[in-house]
């Protein structure tokens, strides 16, 4: 359900941004609202984490796992796109070599 809600919000937002000319291209108000929402969200998340004893006890371990996943995720994306790009380049050069 959440997936559909966010998908719809995303599509509506992109289309509104692209089509509605009365929405300014650059908006300080929009940026400030975004920052306010971000800081509120992070504060509430931090509060929830702090209130939960089990989470608070495992926070260093969870941080370490986050670092590990970051390293794996970044290297996975990098290798996948590198392989794909080299393959596309080989395919493009192929007919010229013949």
């Amino acid at each position: 359900m959440l997936m559909v809600v966010f998908g719809v919000i995303m599509i509506v937002g992109i289309l509104a941004g692209a089509r509605l000319s009365w929405i300014p291209r650059e908006s300080r108000f929009r940026k400030n609202v975004q920052y306010a929402l971000l800081f509120t969200l992070l504060f509430v998340l931090g509060h929830q984490l702090g209130s939960d004893d089990a989470v608070a006890a495992s926070i260093s371990q969870m941080g370490f796992i986050g670092i590990f996943i970051a390293a794996a995720g970044m290297s996975g994306s990098f290798l996948m796109v590198l392989l794909l790009r080299t393959r596309f380049e080989k395919e493009r050069k192929g007919p010229a070599d013949d």
Partner: peptide
Amino acid sequence: CLCLMTLIASIEMG
């Protein structure tokens, strides 16, 4: 917060 942030981010993208 998440819904509003997603909406603003997608308007920026548009």
